[in-house]
Nucleic acid binder design. Structure first.
Lengths: 219, 219, 219, 219
DNA sequence: AATGAATGAGACTTCATTCAT
DNA sequence: TATGAATGAAGTCTCATTCAT
């Protein structure tokens, strides 16, 4: 409004790359990588066609930056929210699930994860970054809780890797469903309508399955 | 038929559409819809640029035909392999899982499912077809087994929809993982290495969680 | 209906080229040269794609044949209808106008003339044929009547060429208008609605202008 | 401005559309709509393939713009040159004819009119624009002069619409002939060689025919 | 730092023509 | 003679990227 407030413009200047990435994130999630035009990104960021090229080498570079930045930011959020949680392994998993939903599953980051799956084969290098920064730490974190639970006799001894994947599967399902069929009005399911209820239900089922039972295994 | 004719082209009208769809399926799964060029499809099918247009209206039409044909074919396979299975609900679910893996999960059809998720928002009409022909029938089938299991006292009474999704989640995970990060050598996990072992493990966990227990629920 | 009547098929066989040209004439008039597809011509003629090529070298060749055949046929019709007409020069011009309307102006041939104008620059060789077979004879014929009228004192002495063109102008206008704006519902004029009335009116006006008047020319 | 810059391209946004339309006008008139390639237009305008699409939606859009712009511009020229002409109806018609020849008949606009006739059926919407902006005003203008002439006793009472068409016919003939057979060296006629002489001759003939004569009509 | 006109490779689609049957 | 599957040149349009201003 007031040209005399340089601070505002100053901030703006420094914020340019972030604004561009923010716009790109929204558009990539909404339309996919190929269908998102550079000019759309620029316009959504309030700049003109050429400006994104001052900060990024090309469209692929923007995509990579979007993934990296979003992931890092979301992961820091999630990590700090998980600090110093104590309780049973089951409780930790529930907290983790809620934290994940709040920080990632319910926001644009979930769309980005879905996009990352869609494009992983086209961006192997980026996939590897994601794998190392997201997938492995996430698996390790989950695996540690599991192992703790087993060590404490809270859970049966189980195959760690497969159990981790079993715990992660509902999260993946929620993200992908919500950003694929969930976007089509005619293709709604219970999961898209009440994702959190589904997540809790799935976790509860698996936790029951993990429960150490004195009397043996089911048929 | 006769290798001695240096024919520029072979006539085989009846086989052409299937050949084109087959080539398209492979390429779509490998590279995605946008990144697959019509000429690539043509070349992969052993014809030239113009030929696919003799059988299909445009690229989108080919995509739709690929989905419809593959889905219908795979579903018929699966359905017939499930005919007249008898046993406990748990056994039925295990058979269904194995049948699904054999007919769909382990083949190109899984890649198509992953692609369908990636593109659902871009092809709402096709998404609806897929939803009606694949998702709903699959959910209904699973739900019936669950309800049977509950009615027989084999399973606890549970929320059907969420449990269906919990059962389906590992399948989705397998398909998507296998055709995203699983395609990148540096991004392997236990699931991509031994998908069937994971699927069995996940099912067993959930079945345990479903088990009717006389003595109450866990914390 | 009856396969036993070979005569009918015999005739058909010989008639093929004519049938193709007839179909082509209609389509060319309706849609223009470029917009008419070979396959449309074939289908309209009741044959398949390749057949026209058995009788004609290519599309251009068909166009040329259409023009030549139609023109020659229409001209023979017109010429024979004008045989042995006697009367004043004005009467001859009126008879010629009516004959022209009946044989050419009111039928598809008029559309062909319009098309010939549209395409003359693209088919110089064909234009020359048309010029020599239609334009020049038509002009000569008209010029002769004019000269006769002048010689008899029926008409004033006038510039023959320009007067011929003045007499021909309404005919051209009728043909062109009827096959251009006349085809668009929202673009009707008196001429398209009542072409014959216009033609008679125009001829009468010009004939009055040609009338030998004792008292001199208008301002 | 500076010849020392080996610039791959020149920036001149304001002039571009006009340059493109100018190039397009020439090419459309010369080769017709279909036969004119977008790249030809671009090259003739001194730009590359993609540039016309910065200013026009597609080829049809360029055609429409060419018609609209040329028509409007020529019509304004003509209208302003006809301002404040006084005299007899016959004189007005002669002035109008000369003005028309100077502003329209002798230039590229005449080719555009011919093209408009050739393409009217393919572009009904554009035809309607042309009809409303050119044909109707032109007819109204001519009709008013005629009615004035009749009211003043200068002309006989005649059918206005048909007489308008009779007056317009030579103009149409000139435009069409000049841009069809007139372009083929072997197809010249008096009209193509001396169009203005023909136009004057035709007008004089029709004016004589319109002359109010006390002593009756000819046979 | 920012603009936005211009570029030009690239992808889709059409259709006149060919030729094995 | 007739067919019609297949060809492939040609044309339209898009959009990531460049660069003079």
């Amino acid at each position: 409004m007031n040209d005399k407030t340089p601070a505002r413009w100053q901030r703006k200047k420094d914020a340019r790359p972030a604004e561009i990435l923010d716009a790109a994130l929204t558009l990539f999630v909404e339309k996919g990588f190929r269908a998102t035009k550079m000019e759309d990104i620029a316009r959504a960021a309030g700049v003109t066609k050429g400006t994104p090229y001052l900060y990024f080498h090309n469209k692929e570079d923007i995509f990579k930056a979007v993934v990296r930045d979003t992931i890092v930011a979301r992961f820091n959020d999630l990590r700090s929210s998980m600090q110093q949680q104590h309780g049973s392994a089951a409780q930790l998993l529930q907290w983790a699930l809620d934290g994940w939903w709040e920080k990632i599953g319910s926001g644009r980051a979930a769309g980005l994860c879905k996009l990352m799956m869609a494009e992983a084969a086209n961006f192997p290098e980026l996939a590897q970054f994601y794998y190392e920064e997201v997938i492995l730490p996430g698996r390790t974190f989950t695996a540690q809780i599991l192992e703790q639970g087993i060590a404490r006799g809270e859970f049966r001894p189980v195959h760690i890797d497969h159990t981790v994947d079993t715990l992660v599967a509902p999260l993946l399902t929620t993200m992908i469903w919500g950003h694929s069929f969930g976007c089509v009005p005619a293709c709604q399911t219970a999961t898209t309508a009440q994702p959190q209820a589904f997540l809790h239900h799935a976790l509860e089922l698996v936790l029951r399955g993990l429960q150490a039972t004195p009397q043996g295994t089911p048929a």
